[in-house]
Each structure stands twice: as C-alpha cells, then as structure tokens.
Nucleic acid binder design. Structure first.
Lengths: 148, 148
DNA sequence: AACATACATTTGTATATACAAATATTGTTT
DNA sequence: AAACAATATTTGTATATACAAATGTATGTT
C-alpha cells in the first residue's frame, strides 16, 4: 500500500501527517474487508462486536452499560443497536428483576450459531488482511500501536 | 494504550483479531484528537482534507471527481461536502466553461487563511498523538502499515 | 413519606454517510 | 441530425451516528 499513490499526490508528505493518513487508509481497508465478510449475515461490525461480548458473558446477561464499556467503538446508541439484534432474533432482552432500571441482554442459541459462522468468515478476512504479515511483524506492530 | 484494559476483558486475545481491535482503538483516538483540534474552526476532517487538496492545486481549480480521487476517505457525497465549505465562504464553485458537465472548485483567500490556522492546530494535535514516538518508530510503523 | 439526587435506559432530533436513481452535458455511431 | 452511450454531478432516500433531553427507577436525606 503506497500512500502517495492512493491519494494521487506527487509531493513528499512529512512523516507525522503521513502516518495519520496511512492509519486512516489502512483502517478504511480493514473496515471494508470485514464489512464484506459480515455482509452475508446482515450484521454491522458494531452488532458483531456486541454479539461477541455477549458470548463472552458465558450465559450471564449483560446490561447496556457493560456493553457500552466493552465495545471497541463506544457509541451513544446501544439501545437501538440491540433493537436490531433483537429483531433478528440473535439476542433477547428483559428488564432486570433486581433493578428495574437495568436491562438484561443475552445472546440466543440462534445468535451463537450465527456467530460461529461469522467467526469462520472473519478467519477468511484475516487471511486477506494479513497476507503480507508474519508473526513477528504483528508483534512489532502491536508494540508500536501501544505507543499511541 | 492497553487493548485488554480498554475493552475490559481479562481474556488473552489472539494476535490477529487483537491487531484489528488495536488498529480500531488507535484510529478512534486519532480521530478524536484531530476532531477536537478542528472543532474551533467548525470543519469536519473530510472538509479539512478537501481544503488541503484545493490548496495543493496552487490556484488551479479542481472538479468533484479529482477531489474524490484524492480524498483519504472516498465518499459518495462530495457535492454536499463542498456545499458546506461554500456556505462558510472557504471555497467557490462554478461550472467549468470548457465542459459544462464539470464543476470548478477553488479555495478562497478566507479559506487559505483559515487553513493556515488549522495547520497550526494540527501541529499541536501531532504533539499529543506522537508524544511517545521517535522518528525511528514512525518509520518502522509506516513500513509495517505498508504491508496491509 | 416527601424531596432531591443519582442512575440506566430510551427517545427526539440534527447531522453524516451510503447507495441508487435522476439530470444534464458531451461524444460517438448510424 | 437523431439515437445512443459515456461522463460528471446532483438529488432522493434509507440508514447510521452523535448529542441532548426525557423517562422511569432507586437511593439517601430530612
């Protein structure tokens, strides 16, 4: 991936802004690959993220604020995101009996099955995304990302 | 920046998905810093990007398709993005005399002045973003990003 | 118990983005 | 020149996201 080529400039860009552009371009590419991997399942990346969090709960229900806390991209509107998963039958939701302000969200069996298939699709996406990487590259990249 | 801490998980995540989450978290952070740096000027990152492209034209007008081609994040709706810059008086737009299908967009003097101030704000943002980086880190990061 | 405060979620609304169809202009073919 | 295709942009519409205000519930204070 050549930054200058993609944004069609002949000028040399200083390293600081260039890195930001580079990050954005890579981000765009990752999102695009993941988005098309999830397309057959008709869930967004955010919805997929929530499903994985719910599976991680191992049967325990999660409420909206814990979902929000654990989401990669925190958003203001977790209610409506869960609404969509509910409509697809991938989660169920009920008011918490011990504290009726809270809501209890759990992944359904259908949700778990769908998620397994999504996992497989994501493994394929990884192959595409990481085709030029070896294990050492990934470790070095993670170390550098930690500096942000 | 510790991935596991931010998404509040105790589990060890395999390196491939972890890197994707890491990239997303860093991206979120970069966007947030840049967004607040540009907030006083009331322009979005996309609008800022377009202004920089127009300045790079050195007086030559640009049409919508060249803008789209050079934008970091290509979007379907460059017309309405330019509308907003137009309303702020930062660009002007007229139909191309030689090919009336096209449109000619140029940055105004006000736009150039505003852009200079935004550049300063962005330099400050760089200081925040890159406070833990040295030149060598940046070069290594760019090399690794090229692998995507 | 009445009141104020804090908490968890929902709703309203404005803005942003994505995708497809519509419009206008130019170029090409017959 | 009429018809058709190609190009450049605009518009309509559906969906997504962001932010603030509103709702309902629980807790602590007097």
């Amino acid at each position: 991936m050549n930054v200058e080529e993609i944004i069609k400039t002949s000028k040399k860009i200083p390293l600081e802004p260039r890195t930001l552009i580079h990050m954005q371009l890579v981000h765009n590419k990752i999102i695009e690959v993941m988005h098309s991997a999830l397309k057959p399942f008709e869930v967004s990346l955010q919805q997929f993220n929530v499903l994985r969090i719910l599976r991680g709960q191992q049967g325990k229900p999660a409420n909206l604020s814990t979902l929000n806390e654990r989401m990669v991209t925190k958003m203001s509107n977790t209610t409506r995101l869960v609404d969509k998963l509910l409509n697809k039958g991938l989660v169920n939701r009920c008011v918490c009996p011990s504290n009726r302000r809270k809501v209890e969200i759990m992944i359904t069996d259908d949700g778990l099955k769908a998620l397994e298939q999504m996992d497989e699709a994501l493994l394929e996406a990884h192959k595409t995304i990481y085709k030029n990487f070896n294990q050492n590259d990934l470790e070095k990249l993670n170390d550098l990302l930690d500096k942000f």
